[in-house]
Write a protein that binds this DNA or RNA. Structure first.
Lengths: 198, 198
DNA sequence: CGAGTTTTGAACCTATCGATCCATAACTTT
DNA sequence: AAAGTTATGGATCGATAGGTTCAAAACTCG
């Protein structure tokens, strides 16, 4: 039919996602995206329409990857509810330790985007809200399970506990971006668990 | 000696701070700053040298105002240690409720700046680190006091508890920016306190 | 091989970015 | 009132932003 692509769209999307993750939306120029992906302007605009649209796809990919992995942990039937949440927090610590640039954690793209764009981009805000709702629902289900299996002893409302865990994970991300090391993040995670098992 | 200023430098700084707080550093143009402050370009550049320098002064002002107010709460000798931290969390909830634009919380300028700039601006990162250190020290002192006055019963290391509280406050800020309402933030604050009083 | 289709790279577009320049206004001091 | 100094508004700067155009390239299919 026609001339085929010389590049892998998914790999390009990954590179763009990483760039937005490192630098943020505004600070990432289309030139940065060309260099990160190895594509020319035409190819980027031909494939992704605009910087805005490319960002949206990159964010969707990030959300899909990350939330899927995290919800899988919360579904691990081999573990008690509390241990599933411990595993989730450990995954967050690992993520903050792995994804770094310039000696600092990159944080989490959804947290970063909440800060940078949620207030002035309704579509992005909607994506983030749906993701948060999904994660809160999963957390809440695990917490209710933990109430039954005895691993979560807090008498607080399960929804409140879920929102607390979600918020505290965001706080761990901010701490990582602020320079906190692995041991610090691990100690925070332990205290988070204390609130659920009091 | 010479022609006097037609404007109040502190008021202009406040307006600039608010703009950076609402829109972030990159998304704030010098034109935005002119409109927000009511000054002309010349006056802004004559007074503040550059957008970068103006931001630094705005951030310093924010840090000074906010951290001073928060540390004052932690020093209130009329309250138990736990109640001081409760008061701090209540102040955070109030702040998230008060400072809004477009139906959303503005979050916290230091958190926002950690996300947007800490990785690529060493001077800004330094300011944020010093502020964090100051707040952690105050939190730690209050937690150690709480151990003595009996209001904080967690056996965890005081430093770890302090970092937990600091991180969780950041998480509350993110939650607020993500759309959480006052009741949600209050419930998160209650669970944070559970971790300290278990 | 040739017609048809899409991709690609380079040149190019307009708008806006942060920042500077300069003539004039507005003040103090002598 | 004159000299000296700073503030101000408007014009302007080069650089870069995101995005478009277009001709050549590279493929498939008949």
């Amino acid at each position: 039919m026609a001339r085929p692509r010389m590049f892998d769209e998914e790999r390009a999307l990954d590179a763009a996602m990483r760039t937005f993750w490192e630098k943020g939306y505004e600070a990432t120029s289309t030139q940065d995206l060309c260099e990160a992906t190895g594509l020319g302007r035409s190819s980027i605009y031909n494939t992704f329409r605009s910087k805005r649209d490319l960002f949206e796809r990159a964010l969707a990919r990030y959300i899909d990857t990350m939330t899927t992995a995290q919800l899988a942990l919360l579904d691990d039937a081999r573990l008690s509810a509390a241990d599933r949440i411990r595993a989730l927090l450990a995954m967050v610590v690992d993520g903050e330790t792995e994804h770094r640039a310039g000696g600092r954690s990159l944080g989490c793209l959804t947290v970063n985007t909440t800060v940078e764009l949620a207030a002035r981009d309704a579509r992005t805000a909607g994506m983030l809200e749906r993701d948060t709702a999904r994660r809160l629902a999963a957390l809440r289900a695990v917490i209710e399970l933990g109430r039954r299996d005895g691993s979560i002893t807090s008498a607080r409302d399960a929804g409140a506990l879920a929102r607390f865990v979600n918020a505290s994970i965001g706080g761990m991300r901010i701490s990582g971006q602020g320079g906190a090391d692995r041991a610090t993040l691990e100690s925070i995670a332990e205290v988070i668990m204390d609130a659920l098992t009091r």
